[in-house]
Computed example of a mutant assay.
Amino acid sequence: MSKIESVTCTRLTTPLHTPFVTALRRTSTTDSVVVRVTDTDGVTGWGEAPQVWQVTGESLAGAEACVAGPLRERLLGADADDLGPLTRAVAGAVARNHGAKAAVDVALHDLVARRRGVSLPVLLGSTTHRVPTDVTLAAGTVDDLAAAAAARVADGFSVLKLKVGTDAASDVARVSAAREAVGPDVAIRLDANQGWTPREAVRVIGALEDAHTDVEVVEQPVRAEDLDGLAWVTARVGTPVMADEAVYGVRDLVEVIHRRAADLVNVKLAKCGGIGPARTLLELARAHDMGTIVGSMMETHIGVGAAASLVAAYGTTLTSDLDAAWWAGSSPVRGGLRYDGAAVVLPESPGLGIEELV
């Protein structure tokens, strides 16, 4: 019987090919803690904890301390194949620290998949290794968004996610310009990243509806903690509304469902704590006829590979948001996923298929 022998952390900074700009922040890098869990047979599983101060509030230093301390203590000497009990132990080891727990949860799933000689999608119950993704357009001027929209369609993407919420007064013009640039056959969704007040959200969404911009969905229009405001917006617009930052775990989603605060939910591993909790959220949403996508923070091929594997196995209502690693100037790992137009292609080699950092 193989035991877990080591749990290690490495900080990783990956330059982006284009600055990523939202209503919450601007960044030119992806900053993560890479976690590796190794057993006594020498098999290693990989996971990732991204640093996104404005969303999760978690830091690289905090993730390292959590992984190297209480999470590592729960794992050392444990049966490497005991996936269910191990992931439950990780989930209950500390309060919050969702990114750190997600990194260890994913590393354990990757480890078990490698030990069994199957890819992570297959471990999760899928035979699919190719899943579609949208692509995000960073917040910018009217001309910037129109040009970026046309460029991404030329790259093969058919679902565009526009970052808005930086200026409610001009958001309608930016979205209208993007629609004009790509025509009627491309799906456009919006992510305000909490940038509007409820009244601004209703006013902007209503104006977009009147302008026939055919927006697919609007994500997190108001502050995460303002569930009353989110419900108020959802009840007053025809465009579907998606909760993102408002939902971390099961209790959050139950409250959103109870209040009818949103039509869909964006499930992210680094928000909820890993693959196990994410599966629960997807199943809960479906049980209540709520739409779903799986998203990612600004993560590398490690975190996005895990999220895409979950989508391959479970599917989502709309095309998921798995483009974070596409923004990297180059892959920070050897092996792992690749992009083929608007598709994430996952390796059929064991686990996430990652061999080493480069």
Rank of each mutant, 00 (worst) to 15 (best):
K3Q: 11
S6R: 13
T14Y: 00
F20G: 01
T22P: 01
D31N: 13
G42Y: 14
G42F: 14
Q51Y: 06
V52N: 04
T56A: 10
L60W: 08
L60R: 07
A61E: 10
V67C: 13
L86G: 11
H98P: 14
A100R: 03
V104I: 11
L108V: 04
L111D: 09
V112W: 15
A113G: 09
T127R: 05
H129T: 14
T133R: 09
T136G: 08
L137E: 04
D143A: 15
L145T: 13
A146R: 08
A149F: 06
F157M: 02
K161E: 00
S170D: 06
R174G: 05
A181Q: 08
I188P: 07
P198N: 05
E200L: 10
I205A: 13
V217E: 00
V218A: 08
V241Y: 05
D244N: 10
Y248M: 08
E255C: 08
R260F: 05
A261S: 12
A270M: 14
I275T: 15
L281C: 04
V304R: 05
A308Q: 07
L318I: 01
A324V: 07
A324Q: 10
A325I: 06
R334V: 07
G341L: 11
G351D: 04
G353D: 01
I354K: 06
E356F: 05
L357Y: 09
